[in-house]
Design a protein around this nucleic acid. Structure first.
Length: 423
RNA sequence: GGAGCGGUGGCUGAGUGGUCUAAAGCGACGGUUUGCUAAACCGUUGUAGGGUAAAACCUACCGGAGGUUCGAAUCCUCUCCGCUCCGCCA
């Protein structure tokens, strides 16, 4: 959520920055300012009336306690109170309208963010390794996992519908091995505190991290209960500190959490619907940071390096791209995507998205810290996948395949998996 | 699911309709005194919004939302959260 004062004081700058996203969001700035103006007019009037009422009530109290009559003061008070109630109602309505509008406005892209309207304008900022070479035609993961019995797509469809799958045998074991590897890496070597949160969260948490109110149709919602299935651990983990004022010494806070992620993927029917690339439930280890504002961009670079390290340890070729203004997610001010090469699919798969939200989420969830000079200031929040699993699984399977159909695993996984290859 | 008890400032905790401008204590911060520390004494001490050139100042906030009243921390209704016990349960 943007600061209403920023919009009030620098509307032109806000409009100019929102335009770089290319989604027409700047149109709401004028409406927000209009509501804000009306709102402040009402506030000035109602507070003046309240001050008068308070003064008269106090005088009435004083007289009554001395046993004096106060009828002259009581006259007209009822009308005054009714008018106050009326204006209070009007103000509440305007407050709500203003908040509704503000919650729909995306974050302002950072000044460094490359300008552009879609993925074509995203610069590659780093590449690691090279595409694996094969002296045979590599298969894609669907063929490989079915041949080896690692994943059962049909069973997933039977149980839950399309977009769900079942790991079996060595496939399930590899998934579990990867989770352990990732959590160990981030907690032991990168200094994150492990969190295992609830997978169901309140609406207020979904608003806090920015999924709601705008993206409701992408979320699973429980019938009869006001709970949502978390689409990412970002939601429960970042909201761990909602409505808090943290001590400066607590920062930076660094959390790593495994959760399954639930996404309806409404509107993307037919896209990537083969295999495990785009599914309704998948596993992910997420990294979340809560930091001081001055340090958030430096923390973003570190966060990104932690996600990249996963692929480097696994020996997987990847590229990191910087998202341009028009391709960034709703809450991000700056964002990197990390894409791993999958030799069978012959494509780069997004396995991590590392974002700095600045104070966008913190303002929504009222997450602050006390500065050295005792001011309460919104924290900056960041998160990045470290990493998403099914696509990592795909890359390992496709890049590790051998001519006989077996799969060779990177050395760091051997102890986790209990073997060096799957056959 | 049932019954009961609670929710007040950074913390403890008083407060059953009118100077509540929320007592008192603790803590924290500043000061005086002091060889140093401690003690003692004095003072300060929340959040948000509005307002102003800046101030002054004003408003709201006692879990949340409504209501009663000229006036609500206090009375009423609903609700959320916590704790205890019972039932059920992996």
């Amino acid at each position: 959520m943007l600061d209403i004062r920023l919009i009030r004081e620098n509307p032109d700058r806000v409009v100019e920055r929102l335009k770089t996203r290319g989604k027409g969001d700047e149109a709401s700035v004028a409406r927000i300012l209009e509501v804000d103006g009306l709102r402040r007019e009402v506030i000035v009037e109602v507070e003046k009336l309240k001050a008068e009422r308070n003064a008269i009530s106090k005088e009435i109290g004083g007289r009554k306690s001395r046993g004096e009559a106060a009828d002259d003061l009581l006259a007209g008070m009822k009308e005054k109170s009714d008018r106050i109630a009326e204006l209070d109602g009007k103000q509440a309505e305007l407050d709500e309208r203003q908040r509704d509008l503000l919650l729909q406005v995306p974050n302002l892209p950072h000044a460094d963010c490359p300008l552009g309207l879609d993925a074509a304008a995203n610069p590659v900022v780093k590449t690691f390794g090279e595409k694996a070479g094969f002296d045979f035609e590599p298969l894609d993961h669907v063929a490989l996992v079915e041949k080896l019995g690692l994943v059962d797509f049909k069973a997933g469809a039977t149980l839950s519908g399309s977009g769900f799958f079942v790991f079996r045998g060595a496939g399930a074991r590899l998934e579990r091995a990867l989770l352990n590897f990732l959590l160990d890496l981030h907690t032991r070597e990168h200094g994150y505190t492990e969190i295992f949160p609830p997978f169901l969260v309140r609406e207020s948490c979904m608003v806090g991290t920015g999924q709601l109110p705008k993206f409701r149709e992408d979320m699973y919602h429980l019938e009869g209960e006001d709970l949502f299935l978390a689409p990412t651990a970002e939601v429960p983990v970042t909201n761990l500190h909602r409505e808090e004022i943290l001590a400066r010494e607590q920062l930076p806070i660094k959390y790593a959490a495994y959760t399954p992620c639930f996404r309806r993927e409404a509107g993307s029917a037919g896209r990537d619907n083969r295999g495990m690339i785009r599914v309704h439930q998948f596993d992910k280890v997420e990294l979340v940071k809560i930091v001081e504002p001055e340090k958030s961009y430096q923390e973003l670079e570190i966060l990104r390096s932690h996600a990249e390290r996963v692929l480097e340890l696994l020996g997987l070729h990847y590229r990191t791209i910087e998202l341009c203004s028009g391709d960034m997610g709703f809450g991000a001010a700056k964002c990197y995507d990390i894409e791993v090469w999958a030799a069978g699919s012959k494509s780069y798969l997004e396995v991590s998205s590392c974002s700095n939200f600045e104070d966008f989420q913190a303002r929504r969830m009222n997450l602050r810290y006390k500065t050295e000079d005792k001011k309460n200031v919104f924290c900056h929040t960041l998160n990045g996948s470290g990493t998403a699993l099914p696509r990592l699984f795909v890359a390992l399977v496709e890049n590790g395949q051998q001519a006989d159909g077996s799969i060779r695993l990177p050395a760091v996984l051997h102890s986790y998996f209990g073997a060096g290859e799957i056959r």
